[in-house]
Computed example of a mutant assay.
Amino acid sequence: MAYWLFKSEPDVWGWDKQVAKGEAGEEWDGVRNYQARNNMRAMKLGDLGFFYHSRTGLEIVGIVEVCAEAHPDSTTDDDRWECVDIKAVRPFEKPVSLEMIKAEPRLKDMVLVNNSRLSVQPVSADEWQLICEMGATKP
């Protein structure tokens, strides 16, 4: 299993909207960055990800699961762009802020710390475990 981080502006697509989609989940559409797209192409069913509120909030608020592998993005006719579907698994007991992540020396190499603009990014198994601990949330 691989781990990921999905960034979304909460006023556009927040955790509550993701939860409301239930077991069916929702396309993680609209991504127009090749590196983020390639990360989605690498995802497998059952991979887990952090749901991160960007721009406002700047915190990990939940865990999601990939429920459909990469397929054409329905928001464009351009076949270069693909997306996965994700579904909410559980909220974080305590959101983990970007400030907390940056303050933790063991997370200094995390993509979120070093390339904060990338909207879909990998998370290592050690980073996953540590952030779940910081958020008092079952991994």
Rank of each mutant, 00 (worst) to 15 (best):
Y3P: 00
L130N: 00
R106C: 06
K94I: 09
R32V: 03
M134Q: 06
V123L: 11
E99H: 11
A103R: 11
R37A: 02
A125Q: 12
M110Q: 06
M43N: 01
F51C: 05
G25F: 08
E69S: 05
N114D: 01
Y52I: 09
D78W: 10
G14E: 10
S116H: 09
A136M: 11
K138A: 14
R117A: 09
M40K: 04
R55W: 12
G49K: 07
N38M: 02
L45D: 02
L58C: 10
C132L: 10
K17R: 14
L112D: 05
M134P: 01
D47T: 04
A42D: 11
H71V: 07
P10I: 14
I101W: 07
I60D: 06
P122T: 13
L118F: 04
K108T: 06
G22C: 07
L130F: 00
T56C: 02
M110C: 07
S97D: 02
R32G: 02
D77E: 14
M40H: 06
C83A: 13
G46I: 08
V64C: 13
D11E: 12
D29S: 15
I131D: 07
Y34W: 11
L118Q: 13
D78P: 04
L5E: 10
R106Y: 05
H71D: 06
Q18P: 01
P95Y: 10
R80Q: 12
V89M: 13
S8K: 13
A70Q: 00
T75L: 14
P95Q: 12
S8I: 14
S74A: 15
T76G: 08
M110S: 11
E127N: 04
S54M: 05
D109S: 07
I63R: 07
K94H: 12
E9T: 12
Q121K: 12
I60H: 08
M134H: 04
R55Y: 14
L5C: 10
M134S: 07
M110N: 03
E9C: 10
V19P: 02
E9H: 11
P95T: 11
